[in-house]
Structure formats: C-alpha cells, structure tokens
Design a protein around this nucleic acid. Sequence first.
DNA 1: GCAATATTTAAGTTACAACTAAAATGTAGG
DNA 2: CCTACATTTTAGTTGTAACTTAAATATTGC
Lengths: 128, 128
Amino acid sequence: MFLDGPLLAAIASPRRREILRLVWSDERSAGDVHRALPDVTFAAVSLQLRALAAAGLVTVRAEGRRRLYRARPDALGPARQMLESMWNDALWRLKLAAELEATRRGPRPRSPHRRRRPRTAPPRKART
Amino acid sequence: MFLDGPLLAAIASPRRREILRLVWSDERSAGDVHRALPDVTFAAVSLQLRALAAAGLVTVRAEGRRRLYRARPDALGPARQMLESMWNDALWRLKLAAELEATRRGPRPRSPHRRRRPRTAPPRKART
DNA sequence: GCAATATTTAAGTTACAACTAAAATGTAGG
DNA sequence: CCTACATTTTAGTTGTAACTTAAATATTGC
C-alpha cells in the first residue's frame, strides 16, 4: 500500500519531468532533447536520461550513432497505484469517522495516560 | 498538465512517507511519531514534520505542550491529477496511433519496422 | 586508418537535503 | 519563580544529487 520509491524520486525532479515530457509522445535522440534544453550540457541530459531509464520510465534504442529514447507511460502505474490507495484509504476513514460522529453525542472519552520512557543516548545513524 | 513539484518531492522521501503514514489515520504528537521511529532523533522528526507541513501534507494543532499532527489527504490531489493526466495523455496517444494505423491500406501493416541493432546495451559501472 | 558525429563516461565541483547534538522556546503545575 | 516536559531552532557535519569540463567510446563515411 505504501511501497514504491525510486520511481517517485525520478518524477520528483523538474528537470527530469521536462525531459520526460520531451520524449513522451515521440521518440527522440539524446541530441534532440539536448537541443530543446539550451540551459544544460549534453552530458547532463545524458545522465538524466540514464536516470529515467534506470527508473524504467524510458526505453532506449540504438539507431546508427544515435540513441533514441521514448517514455514508457505504463511505468507510472505503481506511482498512480500508491497515490490512489492512499487517497482511497483516506476517503474510507473520513466516511467511517463521519458515521461514528453521527451516532455518538457526548463528552469525549479521555485518552489514558502514557507512561514515560527513559531516554538513552541517541546513537549515530546513517540515513536512508 | 505537468505542473506540481514540491509536493512530489515531499512524498518521494521514504522517511517522510513513513512519518506521513503514522499520522495518516490518527492525530499524533511529534513525540508519538518519534517514539515509533527509534532510528531518528526527535529533532529530525520535527524537521520532517515541518517539511510535510510546508508541503501542505499535514496540519498541526497545539494542545497544551504537545503539538498534534494529522495528515491532510486531499493535499495529494495535485499529484494524483498530474499522474492521471500523464497517464491519460499516454492512452489517448496510443489510441490515436492505433486508429491511424487501421485506416492505412496496402500490404499488411506490421509492427513499425526496426532497423538493425548493432550494439548491445552500454556497459555500465555500478556507482553507488 | 582517419575524420566527423553522437553519445557516454570519468573526474571534479557545488548545492542541498537529512541528519545530529546542543541550546532555546514554550507550557503546565507545585 | 522554578522545574520538568514537549518540541523547535540553531549550528555544524555528511552523503548524495545535479551539474560541469574533458576525455573516451561507438558509428558512419571517406
């Protein structure tokens, strides 16, 4: 329900989304993409295309000395699915909460006291 | 159609998704969230909650000396919308291509002819 | 083989995100 | 006012992502 990961990271970058948009409808060479983006180096475009390919968002095909890239829209599936499930779960909970609210009127039940827990010195951790 | 940005960046982080999941159904204090995540400091949790709030994904409410966070699921809307429009645009284009292909007469329309593929995939070095 | 073209890879720089420890802020209650 | 508690903010560190330039690789045509 809350899976996915590198795919979202790939779409989260504005630059990569821009590149993805360029190869969305038509197959384009890396040079074509670069020509459409005057602000960045050829190398940068190549690296981002590689990143998109690693995320499964584009396919690459060699033709002569050019390499043709094309978006693979169905790769968006998992991301869509994740967002949809989050959304649906939210709707479900809201509905449930509304029903409960309708059937109950009165003072709010107090939550029980939470026992404190002794602190240990925080160990050094690496991040994800 | 290809808008959005900081919202996707907010959901793209696994840590933030984990935190978001914790405050998804119930309102929880920053301490509650921290207690559920033994690997990170209280400060780190606080910073991530702030980031989520900045993206509009959570609301915060002060009660006594605690601050209660809760997810705001409808904030996912724009992200869903973006993915959907990308997806739909893809479907639309595929359908259009199929129709054009169907109206064409003559020898059997086979799959678009491929040129030769002289090269294997480029050698890549793992570079974590 | 050599030059021209198209692209990738390598190496290095910079910016930033995520984290930690410690100090600061705000709040409740004796 | 003082202390304990809950959380935020600050300052500093580190890993990584995104980029650059320069060199390397692959392909075509002479």
